[in-house]
Design a protein around this nucleic acid. Sequence first.
RNA 1: GCCUCCAUAGCUCAGCUGGAUAGAGCAACGGUUUUCUAAACCGUCGGUCACAAGUUCGAAUCUUGUUGGGGGUACCA
Length: 592
Amino acid sequence: MNIQNQIIKVTQRAVKDLYAADLSEDQISLQETRKEFEGHFTLVTFPIIRFSKKSPEQTGQEIGEYLKNEIDSIVDFNIIKGFLNLVLSSDYWFERLQTEITDPDHGFFPKNGKKLMLEYSSPNTNKPLHLGHIRNNLLGYSVAEILKAYGYEVIKANLVNDRGIHICKSMLSWKLYGDGETPESSGLKGDHLVGKYYVRFDKEYKKQIKGLISSGHTEEEAKKNAPLIKEAQSMLQKWEAHDPEVVELWRMMNGWVYAGFAETYKQLGVDFDKYYYESDTYLLGKDIIQEGLESGVFYKKDDNSVWIDLTDDGLDEKLVLRGDGTSVYITQDLGTAQLKYDDFKIDESIYVVGNEQDYHFKVLFLILKKLGKSWAEGLFHLSYGMVDLPSGKMKSREGTVVDADDLIEEMISTAKARTEELGKVSDFSSEEKEKLYYNIGLGALKYFLLKVEPKKRLLFDPNESIDFQGHTGPFIQYTYARINSVLNKSGFNVETIVEKPTVFKESELDLIQLLDRFPEKIEASAKEFSPAQLANYIYDLSKLYNKFYHEESILKAEDEHIKNFRLKLSKVTALTIAKGMKLLGIDVPERM
RNA sequence: GCCUCCAUAGCUCAGCUGGAUAGAGCAACGGUUUUCUAAACCGUCGGUCACAAGUUCGAAUCUUGUUGGGGGUACCA
């Protein structure tokens, strides 16, 4: 049992003994003592005075004495109004450092026996990835890693949107204007080549619409009847009928895109355990529609379309199958949800998808519950905010997107420029240098995106480069490298016997306390699916370490005991930083 | 129209289940290097927590309303 729980338990007993009242756990408010006061934990006694019928000061005094008598680690306390500040012994904190914090598994939880699928990325195969996808990928990857650390077995899944009218647009456009261009012949990355034809389609299509409007059609008619869109639709029908020529073209172009995506994923350091392809799953879900019709959850309208009435739940009536028997988006998603469960018997299933689809997932999960699926309770939409530019939303067709590959490249070259300016690694081989630039560049990018709460929209200004100083990934990486440098010079290893110093310096004690909270932060990040919580913690830890580093000399400490103690503290800080950053998908360099 | 999310320093963000004088970074200004990596550290400046009412011993945090912005909205995904 940790000290917080112990304090809570004993407080309950104190209130019972002293005031003959039963206090539930959530009636007790225990928090970290604020920096400006003496103590480590603070019990807020305001809620207790209605039982004690005494002043906050006196109540605090009585409970303080009780706690001090009962818990060895509490050596002192002070009271300011309704705040009882508890002071723990230096023995307690040193013990924490020697045991829990030094444990290589500090921060990691035992396996909880639960299996969870986390779907992220899920790109369309008609254009390259952009900054919005980067956020999705980094978020998905990091949440998956955090959940593993929290004890889950995690299956990372990617549901590739590889079919549909938008894919046919690129295909048709390439066929008409491509002149046999390939990634090899053009030197273009496959996904970019395909994206080029997607944009070209839109351009030509708009031209046709304009032409039709000027010859007297309404805009709506023009959009519907333009020859290009007609042709794309007929291509989609051919694809669905397994027309060999269309399928061949589809295979070839998707192959280009996959090769391109694989490169981007590799650069981002994300991976997947299971790929689902919409071309395999788009017909799923129809049996579920049948099932729902039989059980009366769904109903049929005169035109044969199938609906569900969700007005009692504050939502609308929702179409789940078209009148002609073809699927809509949600039909497939119903089927795919079932497939995921059938494949892996997962306890929980998380979808990392932007908040523009909040309504869709609300409906999807509600329908599955109404259908009585036992696993529906374990579904969760991890909804994240859009990445906006100062000019507003990114739009691929208007060319206002921040391309993923370009941005990554830019981050690496900026990292290179900064590093060369500082000139600290001139003795590195060119391979080592490349690796370092990559780590720092990606570290800056990843941290920039992950430090913001997923739910919030994120502003990215392409004209202002992402920082490498202050609250950033490189700052944390630098802290790690700095510690590493000291450790290397010292010859310290984990086995070195460390004795408790007679007095702790303020920054030393602060550091131990903060390190002690690492597991708590992992837990919070896992429960809230929020890498931001962890990211901000690692920053606080790094900042605190730098303060300590600046205030106290390590290698030239007063004596050998203190030196070893500080080395130990440095070592575990470095390990904690590295573990935490790993969960964000960021590597820390040994030198920079 | 209806539903939903958001609003904290000039800018980008923290602020845990309601708790003490609301914190960081960037930007601006000043200081720290014969001493372990200055991608660092220290200081100054900067706030009506959008606005109003309510609940409470106590509200940036909870409730309601108002304003402003994002997203969604019945056969797109």
